[in-house]
Simulated scan of single mutants.
Amino acid sequence: MAADAALALPPAAPPARPRVLLVGTALAAGATFMAFAGMIGLYLGQRAAVLSQGGTWLPDGVHIPLTPGGIGMGTMLLSAVTMWWAVDAVGRNDRPSAYLALGITVMFGLAVINATTFLYTQMGLAIHTKVGLLIYTITGAHLAMIVAGLVFASVMTFRTLGGEYHGRDREGLVAAALFWYATIAVNAVIWYAIYVTK
């Protein structure tokens, strides 16, 4: 009789899945942020050394306009809202809003790439100079980070379209949002260190 009662019980719940994607993304975002901190620290150290000796940091004829960088920073801040809108929409099983939010986030990321490449055409900075090498390396690496974040968000969008993420299981989108927020944080540091203080 006890054996029959034991057989009638439902099976035990599967063990909680470790959040491998989220933890891996957090580690990758942290490592990427630290790499940028090192590059920007090198840039600021070189600039401080030149300025302390009474020199000028930017070569003659080079001007870094603030407008493209400021527009890029504002666009990245807007994309923070749309990225979280996508995560929230998937949590509420509102797929149309999630697709719209992810589409707008991708559009914002492409707009920042466009603003940065426009800034390159306006600066008049040669890459063979020390200043040019540092600025193009830092901003070019950030463009690569934006592209990686856009690919990550796009893959998560397709996985959402396929029905893998819904309701309470939205780990992939949360991981994409985490990486995107690290991209925004790096952009904020670049914006202030390179575009504002020059």
Rank of each mutant, 00 (worst) to 15 (best):
A3M: 07
L7H: 10
A8G: 01
L9T: 15
A13V: 11
P14G: 04
P15F: 07
P15H: 03
A16Y: 06
R17K: 13
R17W: 02
V20A: 08
V20Y: 04
V20S: 03
V20T: 13
L21A: 09
V23P: 00
G24K: 04
A26H: 06
A26S: 09
L27A: 15
A28L: 15
A29L: 11
G30N: 02
T32V: 11
T32M: 06
T32Y: 13
T32H: 06
F33W: 10
M34A: 14
F36E: 06
I40T: 02
G41N: 03
G41L: 03
L44Y: 06
G45H: 14
Q46V: 13
R47D: 08
A48S: 12
A48R: 10
V50C: 10
L51N: 06
S52Y: 08
S52K: 13
G54C: 07
G54F: 06
G54E: 08
G54I: 13
G55P: 05
T56V: 11
L58S: 11
P59R: 05
G61F: 03
G61V: 07
G61S: 10
V62W: 01
H63M: 14
P65F: 09
L66Q: 00
L66N: 00
M73P: 04
T75V: 15
L78M: 15
L78C: 10
S79T: 05
W84F: 11
W85K: 04
W85P: 00
V90G: 01
N93P: 06
N93T: 14
D94V: 06
P96R: 13
S97C: 10
A98C: 10
Y99L: 11
Y99A: 11
L100N: 08
A101P: 01
A101C: 02
A101R: 03
A101D: 05
T105K: 03
M107Y: 05
F108L: 15
F108Y: 14
G109V: 01
G109T: 07
L110C: 08
V112I: 07
I113C: 09
N114T: 08
A115K: 11
A115I: 09
T117G: 02
F118R: 04
F118D: 13
L119Q: 09
Y120V: 02
T121V: 02
T121A: 08
M123F: 06
M123W: 13
M123V: 11
H128D: 14
T129Y: 08
T129P: 00
G132Q: 09
G132W: 09
L133H: 12
L134H: 08
I135Y: 05
I135E: 07
Y136M: 13
T137F: 09
I138V: 10
T139G: 01
G140H: 07
M145Q: 12
I146G: 03
G149M: 05
L150I: 15
F152V: 00
F152I: 03
V155A: 09
G162A: 12
E164A: 02
Y165R: 05
H166Y: 14
R168D: 14
D169M: 13
E171I: 04
L173I: 07
V174N: 09
A177W: 12
A182E: 02
T183K: 04
T183S: 12
T183M: 04
I184D: 09
A188K: 01
V189C: 06
W191N: 02
W191T: 05
A193V: 10
A193N: 03
I194D: 06
I194N: 06
V196G: 00
T197C: 08
K198L: 04
K198Q: 14
